[in-house]
Each structure stands twice: as C-alpha cells, then as structure tokens.
Design a binder for these strands. Structure first.
Length: 881
RNA sequence: GGGCGGGUAGCUCAGUUGGCCAGAGCGACGGCCUUACAAGCCGUAGGUCACAGGUUCAAGCCCUGUCCCGCCUACCA
C-alpha cells in the first residue's frame, strides 16, 4: 500500500473509472423496474457546440442528483441528447460557407441541409464526449437528437394536434424580423439594448400653407413609408391642422393629419409620423384609421422600390445617413438632438430587429398558458427557488401568440401543405398524397418551426411519444428539470404548456433553476466579455472532481454565482486532502482484516464514538440538503466534516493508537472504525466527486463492485452520541487553548511545556484524566500534564479558561507579562460586554415573563458561564504581577 | 413606467419558522518542512449586519421610509 502516490493525479484515474462504469452498464436505466423511478431529461445542448461553463454547472448538478438517487435505490434515468439549434447553427454554417466562397442561397435548400447533416455528423460526440469528461452518468444508449425521425414525428404530431384544435393560424402581422438572418423571431429572442441614438426634428410642410409640422423621430428613414401624421385630438397647438394634409418631405406624398388619443402630447413635439408597415404602434394606429401600409424594405433590410428610386437598394442605415443629408440640403432638417433609447437586437446575431410585415404561422398559446398556470398553482410543478414561480406567472399571464414559423432551412419543416388547385390548407403528420379536391398539386410549407417548439416536446418526445412506450409509463412526468433562469420562458414554460397539451400531464414535478456562472467580479461569464473559463481546460488543470466540487460549492439560489478560479483550486486541494487522508489510513491498515472485526462497541475510544456521531450528523445533513436542492450546503457539510473533523481531529487522535499500540484488538478496532467512516463518507461524497471517491473506495475495505451502485449511507441511530460529542468538545477546547497560548506566547513548536489543569468538577476531571494523555501528544509537545481538583497557580504562567476548567501553562523565562496581560484583558473586555448584554436581558422582567422557558434557561446558563469565566479571568489577571 | 433580487470581514458570499458570544472560503499577518498531505499544519487580526424609524421581552432576519447596486419586463415616437 506504500505505492500510493503522495499527490492526487486525476487524469488516468478519471478515464479509467469512466470506462469501467460504461462497461458495467451502470448508467443504463431499465425500461421497467420494481424500483421506484427517478428521471431527468438533459437540457439538450447544441449538437455542433462546445461545452461551456454553464453546461458544466447544469450537468454537474444533474449528475449529483442522478447518482445520489441511483445510490438511494431508484431506477434512475438520465435521458441525454442534443438539439439542432436552428438559427445559431445556420448562422455559423453560413459564416463557414462564406469562407469557402459560397453561400446558403448558392447551394440551395437540399445541398445546404446535406452540409448541415455532415457537420452534425462530424461534430457528433464532441459535446457528448465533454459531458463524459466531467463524469456525467447519462444513459447514453438512449441518446436522442431533435431531428431524429422519432422526435420529428413527435413534432409533426404535436403541431397537427394544435392545428386540429384550432390553436394554429396563419396571419400577416408586423412581427420582429431579423434582416441579417432573414427570418421572423419571437419577442423573447429580441434583446433591448440602450443605444446613443438621436432625435431628428423634421419639417413636414402643410399643404397650401407656409406652415409646417415639426416631427421628431429616431428612425428618419421610415418616413419613406409614412402614410399619416397624428396628433392628440385635444392638443391646442394642433387643432387647426387636424384633417389637413401635409406634404411628406423628399417623397412629396400627400398624407393626412389625423387625431388619435394614443399620441402623447408631452413627448417629442406632440406630432407623430405614422408608418403602419414599420412600427408596431403605427400599425395599430393605421388599422384604426384605415391607413395604407407601405412596406419600404426588402427582407434583408435594404430599401425596396416603394422607397423611391433615390433610395432603392440602399441599406437601411446608409439610407438614414443619406436621407438626413438630403433633408439638411432641402432645409427641412431642423435639429438633431441626442436621444438615448433602447433598440431591439436579435439575441443570436446582434442585428437590429425590424418590425416587418410578413405572413407567419402562430400558435395561440393563451389557453395553454392558462392551463399551465393552473397546474403550477396546484403544485403539480414546483419551482425551486420559489421566486422563479413569480416570474413564470408574470410572463404566462401576459403571454402573446407565439410566432413559430422561421424562414430557415435547418429544422422541422411545418407539416402544412397547400393545394395549388383549390387553395386548401392541409395539416398532416404523414405527407398527404392528394387534396380533398382530388388534386395532387400539393406543396409543403417552406418554413421550419422555431427550435423551441421541438425542445418544448423534449421530455416526452425523447421517451417515444406519440407512441405509448414503457419508458413514458415509467418515467413521465420526469422528477426534476435542472436549468438556468435565462431559458425559463423560452423552454421551461413551453414544456409545461406542451406537456399538458400533448401528453395530458406536466413534464416534470420540480424545476430547479440555477444561477448563471459569473466571474469573481460578479460579471456573467460570456464570450464577449472574455471572462469565460473553459471546462475542458479546467478539468485538465485541476481535475474533474475539483471542478465539480467548486461548482456544487458555489451553487446558491442566486441569479448569478461567482466561480473564482481560487474556488476551483480549493476543490483541487480538497481532493488532495482526501487523497492523503486515505493514503494515511491505507498505509496504516497493515494486515487489517475487516471480516474479523466485530461490531461490538467494547473497544471504542471516546473519539471513535465521537466521529461516528459526527458522521451521523453529516449524513443526515447532506441528505437533507440534497432533498432541498441546497447543493452548496451539502458541499460545505462534507468539506467541514472531512477536513475539519475527520482529518484535523480524528486522524490526529488515532495516530497514537495506530503507531504505538501493541494491543492488536485495539488497533483492529480503530482500523475498523476509521476505514468504515471513510468508506461511508466516500459514498456521501460520491455524487459530487465521483472519480476520486471510486478510486479510494476501491482501495478501502468495501462491499460490492463499484461505489456508483453502493447504497447511500443512512445514519446509524446507534451512533448518535451527544455525550461523547460534548466530552470531545471539552477536550478539543483544552487543546485549542493550549495551542493558542503557545502561538501567542511565541513558544517554539519544538519546545515542550508543562500543563496544569484545575478541574473542580469530578466529571471533567475524570474526562481529562481518562483521555487527555492519549490525545494531547498528537497535538502539542508537552513534558507533563497535571490534573487536580484544585491547585495553586504557578508563577509566570499563561492561563486559559475552558468551562469550569482553568489551564496553567508555566512559561518561566519565556512569558512576556505585558503580552499575557494584553491577551487576558482583551478577552476580559469582550467577556464583560457579552456579560452585560446577557444580564440586561435577564434583568428585564418581561423577558422572563414572555420568552419561552428554554430560551430563558439558555440565557441563564450563558450568564453563569460568563460570570464564572470572568471571575477566573480577573483572578488570573490579578495574580499576574 | 412596472416587477424581482440584493447592500453582512479587504474580496466572494452563508446566516433556513426572530432566541447560544454574527460564520465560511479566499486574501492579510505571525510561526512551523511535526514521518498522510507545504495543494499542508498551528495561531492572530478584521464587522456601528447600507441609513432612519417602527413592531417585539428579543431584530442581520418582520414592517415603513430613504439612499445605492443588479436583473427582468414595457409600444412613449
């Protein structure tokens, strides 16, 4: 066993165990089982993407849950897969095509799609392989992709079902249009960004008059599509122009001045240019006043022929500049005023979104939303943290129709066919052969569906829906969904709506919404900020377990979670600490034979009973934390127990017995207790740090083939031992006091000191007499220990007080009286303050009267302790001369 | 404009239904290569819990107001 390396090196260990688990098929969940079911579907990452830190967090948390539940005896399914990620993937492909000197249009739909599939097949596995590197125990045999035939059938089925129920319709509407991607997008995909824009004040001359109206606009180029000017009906400034005609500058089109209450008199000049085809408000205004809609843009954002020959073919922003110059030249530009305002940008490509008239397919999600809200209100889906539920309601209650068609090629083509002969529109799961009119001139809709539509079906489409499969029966609704808050509306809300609609049941019982990863300054990690960390580099540098531990440790129910590199380093140090504690133990197991150990408590030392009791508390705590999705607390509990109880104290406490005991049965006992506690703790830690724990577990005495399938450690009620915990606490306090004196008095660690302890109570005297000499040498160099009911304070010594105990450490020739006085006075100052506060509370008759008895008693105890300690401190101070 | 979250140690944050002397990690300072671990060990310092009121026997926690910060959301051209 001495061949165990001194430092933990994760690389080969991680690869080895992952392969082992795969070979043993531990990741695979049975279709049906006698065990209770637990299931999670992975938020499918982009098939052509790379793992980023957000994925790492999301999937680590899922892996923690799934490994934990598996150990708890569940038939645990983690359904993996990937998403085709329509628009983003196409954007990247188009960039590649440009480099290769071609384009989407040049290739045509069929060849373009072929390229996409080739790319998909090439990159297939990249992100999956990365998930494996962080240790994800997904059921890889069941891996799905949103464009697979089965899932595509689910998409068609769901869409047709919605169509048949009258929830799908086609409409020409002023929707958000991305001129760069040349597709409509939903309002969720529009990101408002504040820009330093300008207000352009333009003269609109009134026909047959020398007067003009002053119009302020942020988008002067849209004036080419103006079909009216509007003022407030009660605006005194403009009463005389209502009903008159103005001449649209440059264009010379005559347009009416209308009155509408929508216009805000306070804003701008109180006169509004109306462009029904290019502004949502103007669109509504136009409908009310029956104004013409003049579309001045091509789909790519260049000006079309309606803009007039002057501007035809120009880009919309070039046109703005040109138009401003022309207005200036004509003397119609009055002024340009800085006007910061927010402008919609496409969240995928960053282009400024254009409100644009086009025929689109919509889903009327209002009825679905109502049902989803009801389900959440009834608790069929529980949000963690709870506050996310409010965001959910807020969005759902104000939901608008969902534009689902996209003018793109990579995705599910809408299962809609048009009859060229009779104009019939057919929605069908399978390609129809002929129309009801008998015509075979059927043409499928060109548009594809929004990627989020297929994602919305993910929890059941991956399990075989629309077929009724054993998998659906066993695992739907899934137990919990784990995802970031940024896709609550995009994805979570839609899954709930579509799950209820299509499968009649919510898709998951719980949603755990985690933070987005931020850097040390609290800034979200993003490529544009350049503050990202690469998970694969990080794993290489620190090890997967260290990375996972840091992620779990930092996971709090906040919107952003800082993940400083120092925390990942701490994870690495923790892994190394565990490694070395295990190494120590393994080196001292000798020819220990666990099978010969009885479970008798006879030979147990105080510290054995203590560590078992502490283990119990830890096991309870960790389980409770995971039950409540308090990941960070679980990690803290494990860290605290392993490092600061097991390593700092227990290992030190047993060294004497392991090193110097000849009594083989006593040695056998401590070997048994220590290896048993470590083995169980490895199981508690396994979901968080799977590789390290497997490696150590395999080396320790254990039962079974893998820690992965070992049972989750439950607390053993027989191990709860508050008395031992109290006794150990006293001993630890004594040791800490001595160490503190040595440290503060600058006693060299190599020099031995004498310890005298006045122990008035028989209980503590007995405790110290029985145990202290066993334990003390491991912690501090001592020449002798004297314990007595009462003893005289030696000259020139430092003192400390622990409960009713008074410790004397003679330091003749070493002690600095001034330093010791300072030390004691400082302690006394704090003590006096605390004592005064406690006394004040207790002197209040209302406190005695109204506070619970236990609280009063606690306070009284506390006061007594303060008083006794103060008394001792003062006497020590007085004797200091 | 509306909504949500936050302001606790130098930094990042815990602090679960109000009730032991307000904690952790990192950083700082001092001392140790003590045979599991220097990726370690020991010790020390550092906080008017944003501010002002209120409720209560008791407030970091509950209520009101103020000041900051962040985010989400909204059609003011």
């Amino acid at each position: 066993m001495t061949d165990i390396p001194k430092t933990y090196s994760p690389q080969e260990i991680e690869a080895k165990w992952y392969q082992f688990w795969l070979e043993k098929d531990y990741f695979h969940a049975a279709d049906t089982s006698d065990k209770p079911s637990f299931s999670i579907v992975i938020p499918p990452p982009n098939i052509t993407g790379n793992l980023h830190v957000g994925h790492a967090l999301d999937n680590t948390l899922q892996d923690v849950l799934i490994r934990w539940k598996r150990m708890q005896g569940y038939n645990a399914l983690w359904m993996p897969g990937t998403d085709h990620a329509g628009i983003v993937t196409e954007i990247i492909m188009e960039q590649k095509l440009e480099v290769w000197g071609t384009s989407r249009e040049a290739l045509g739909r069929e060849k373009f799609i072929d390229r996409m599939w080739n790319w998909k097949n090439e990159s297939r596995g990249t992100i999956i392989e990365q998930l494996r590197q962080i240790g994800c125990s997904c059921d890889w045999e069941r891996e799905r992709f949103t464009l697979d035939e089965g899932l595509s059938e689910a998409v068609r089925t769901a869409f047709v079902k919605l169509y048949d129920d009258g929830l799908v319709y086609r409409d020409t509407y002023l929707a958000n249009w991305c001129p760069n991607c040349q597709t409509v997008i939903s309002d969720l995909e529009v990101e408002s960004i504040e820009i330093d824009g300008s207000f352009y004040h333009i003269k609109y001359p009134i026909k047959g008059s020398s007067e003009y109206l002053e119009i302020a606009t942020t988008r002067p180029e849209t004036m080419l599509g103006d079909t009216a000017v509007a003022v407030h009906p009660e605006d005194n400034r403009y009463q005389h122009v209502i009903g008159k005609t103005v001449i649209l500058p440059l264009v010379q089109r005559e347009i009416p001045v209308i009155a509408d209450e929508f216009v805000d008199r306070e804003f701008g000049t109180g006169a509004l240019k109306v462009t029904p085809a290019h502004d949502p408000n103007d669109y509504e205004l136009g409908l009310r006043h029956d104004l013409p809609q003049i579309n001045i843009f091509h789909p790519d954002g260049t000006l079309n022929q309606s803009a007039g020959s002057e501007y035809h073919g120009m880009d919309r922003f070039d046109c703005r500049s040109a138009l401003i110059e022309d207005l200036r030249d004509s003397g119609l530009l009055m002024k340009v005023v800085p006007h910061p305002h927010s402008v919609g940008h496409h969240d995928r490509c960053g282009a400024i979104v254009e409100p644009y008239l086009s025929p689109q397919w919509f889903i009327n999600v209002k009825p679905l939303a109502e049902r989803a809200i009801e389900a959440v209100r009834k608790g069929e889906v529980v949000f963690i943290p709870e506050r996310e539920e409010k965001r959910f309601y807020h969005w759902m209650e104000n939901i608008l129709p969902w534009p689902v068609s996209r003018q793109r090629w990579w995705g599910h083509r809408l299962p809609i066919w048009y009859c060229d002969d009779c104009g019939e529109v057919i929605a069908a799961v399978e390609t129809p052969l002929e129309c009801t009119c008998g015509s075979q001139n059927l043409r499928q809709e060109e548009d594809v569906l929004d990627t989020w539509f297929s994602s919305g079906l993910w929890p059941f489409s991956t399990m075989g829906w629309p077929k009724t499969t054993p998998l659906l029966k066993s695992f739907y609704p899934t137990s919990v969904l784990v995802t970031g808050w940024d896709i609550l509306f995009f994805w979570v809300a839609r899954m709930i709506m579509l799950g209820l609609k299509c499968h009649g049941e919510v898709p998951f019982r719980k949603v755990y919404i985690h933070a987005l990863v931020a850097d040390e300054q609290g800034q979200k990690m993003s490529k544009s900020r350049g503050n990202t960390i690469d998970p694969i580099d990080t794993i290489y540098k620190y090890g997967a377990d260290a990375f996972r531990f840091a992620l779990v440790f930092c996971t709090l129910p906040n919107p952003y979670m800082p993940l400083p590199e120092s925390q990942i380093e701490a994870g690495k140090r923790f892994a190394n600490k565990i490694w070395n504690a295990s190494r120590f133990l393994l080196m001292n197991l000798g020819n220990f034979d666990p099978s010969r150990t009885t479970n008798s408590n006879d030979n147990l030392y105080l510290c054995d009973r203590w560590i078992r009791s502490r283990f119990n508390a830890t096991a309870k705590n960790v389980t409770a934390c995971l039950d409540e999705y308090r990941f960070s607390d679980a990690a803290h509990a494990l860290y605290e127990f392993l490092w600061h109880e097991f390593c700092d104290w227990y290992i030190e406490l047993i060294k004497q017995r392991l090193y110097y005991t000849d009594d083989s049965s006593s040695k056998q006992t401590v070997q048994s207790v220590a290896s048993d506690i470590l083995e169980r703790t490895m199981r508690l830690l396994h979901p968080t740090m799977p590789f390290l724990t497997e490696e150590i577990w395999q080396r320790l005495p254990h039962e079974g083939d893998s820690i992965m399938v070992a049972p989750w450690p439950n607390p053993n009620p027989a191990w709860d031992d508050p008395e031992s915990e109290n006794a150990m606490q006293t001993i630890m306090d004594v040791i800490e006091s001595i160490r503190s004196i040595r440290g503060e008095m600058n006693v060299a660690p190599s020099s031995e000191v004498e310890i005298l302890i006045k122990a008035p109570s028989a209980k503590n005297r007995n405790l110290l007499e029985t145990h202290l000499e066993d334990y003390l040498p491991s912690f501090t160099r001592i020449s002798s220990v004297s314990i007595a009911e009462s003893l005289e304070k030696p000259a020139a010594c430092a003192t400390a007080i622990v409960g009713d105990l008074t410790l004397y450490v003679p330091l003749a020739g070493v002690i600095d009286i001034g330093a010791e006085r300072n030390r004691l006075e400082k302690r006394l100052g704090k003590l006096t303050a605390d004592l005064t506060a406690a006394r004040k509370t207790l002197d209040n008759p209302k406190f005695i009267e109204r506070a619970p008895k236990t609280v009063v008693m606690q306070k009284q105890d506390l006061l007594e302790r303060f008083e006794s300690e103060k008394e001792k401190l003062e006497s020590n101070l007085n004797m200091l001369e």
